[in-house]
Simulated scan of single mutants.
Amino acid sequence: MGTTSSSSGRPAGARDRDDEGRARNARPRDGLGRPLPYGSAGVERQPEGVVRTPEQSVHEAQELLDAGKPFHAHEVFEDAWKSGPEEERALWRGLAQLAVGLTHAARGNVTGGARLLRRGAGAVEDWASASGRAEPYGMDLDGLARWARALAEHVERGGGVVDAGARAPRLRA
């Protein structure tokens, strides 16, 4: 019988692994993706590697954003960027950056939040310009970029910790 770490409830030195043996942190997480102590009640995590249609990705991400779970919305966008067509990867990566920027702003990380919000805004604008598509899948990329820059400015001006659900963007016009 192995020894158990008193703080985690797991065998000392044990590492979390997925079914394929890859290291995965199995600690529960809160709605903003922050790890909680083992044994705590956390928010159900988004499954990784799910292939969705673009419309499903937008719908699921919006639901998560509205629920104040931008970290989890980022995971939906990340799946889309990794599984989607090459010509759309920059779009989905930019959307993931927007969600992570909101996550950092909600966690009180002013610098990281503002930086990622601006980076994501630039990425979706660049993609729209290069593709000639300002509203892919009904999304308002210009509106998202304006939202992101305004939120970045708000947090930098000392706007305090952001309520992620209340400040969630509308992906579709």
Rank of each mutant, 00 (worst) to 15 (best):
89 R>F: 12
40 S>G: 04
34 R>N: 13
88 E>F: 04
33 G>R: 03
48 E>V: 12
113 G>F: 02
47 P>A: 15
32 L>E: 07
62 Q>K: 09
83 S>E: 11
83 S>M: 06
52 R>T: 04
19 D>N: 12
43 V>K: 12
34 R>F: 09
88 E>W: 09
66 D>S: 15
77 F>G: 00
72 H>S: 05
100 V>G: 04
100 V>T: 13
72 H>K: 14
96 A>K: 09
91 L>E: 02
36 L>K: 12
27 R>D: 03
104 H>F: 13
113 G>K: 00
74 H>R: 12
25 N>G: 13
59 H>E: 11
50 V>K: 02
25 N>L: 08
113 G>M: 07
22 R>L: 05
112 G>L: 04
59 H>K: 08
45 R>S: 12
45 R>Y: 09
45 R>W: 00
55 E>C: 06
21 G>T: 15
32 L>A: 13
113 G>T: 02
108 G>C: 05
31 G>W: 09
22 R>W: 03
45 R>I: 01
108 G>D: 06
39 G>K: 06
54 P>C: 01
28 P>E: 04
72 H>P: 00
114 A>P: 04
67 A>Q: 08
93 R>Q: 14
104 H>N: 08
58 V>G: 01
55 E>F: 07
63 E>A: 10
94 G>E: 03
24 R>W: 02
60 E>W: 02
44 E>I: 08
65 L>S: 01
100 V>L: 06
46 Q>S: 12
93 R>I: 03
74 H>K: 10
44 E>K: 15
84 G>Y: 00
94 G>K: 02
47 P>Q: 08
109 N>S: 10
93 R>F: 08
88 E>N: 04
73 A>E: 03
82 K>I: 03
85 P>F: 09
96 A>V: 07
115 R>Q: 13
29 R>V: 10
21 G>V: 10
85 P>V: 14
111 T>V: 13
26 A>F: 03
35 P>M: 05
26 A>N: 12
25 N>K: 08
34 R>T: 09
93 R>N: 08
114 A>V: 00
88 E>I: 11
114 A>Y: 09
112 G>I: 01
102 L>Y: 02
107 R>E: 11
44 E>N: 09
70 P>E: 00
62 Q>D: 15
20 E>V: 02
74 H>T: 08
36 L>Y: 07
53 T>M: 08
58 V>T: 06
116 L>H: 07
34 R>I: 00
62 Q>Y: 10
27 R>F: 06
19 D>V: 14
108 G>N: 01
61 A>D: 01
85 P>L: 09
81 W>D: 10
22 R>H: 15
90 A>P: 05
118 R>N: 06
57 S>R: 13
72 H>N: 09
114 A>C: 07
56 Q>W: 00
36 L>D: 10
111 T>I: 10
75 E>P: 06
80 A>T: 04
51 V>W: 01
69 K>V: 00
55 E>H: 13
82 K>E: 05
67 A>S: 14
37 P>N: 05
67 A>D: 13
116 L>I: 01
82 K>H: 10
87 E>W: 12
108 G>Y: 05
80 A>E: 06
48 E>C: 13
70 P>G: 00
116 L>Q: 11
21 G>I: 10
111 T>H: 15
39 G>I: 05
95 L>C: 11
34 R>M: 05
77 F>P: 03
77 F>V: 00
62 Q>E: 10
41 A>L: 13
26 A>V: 08
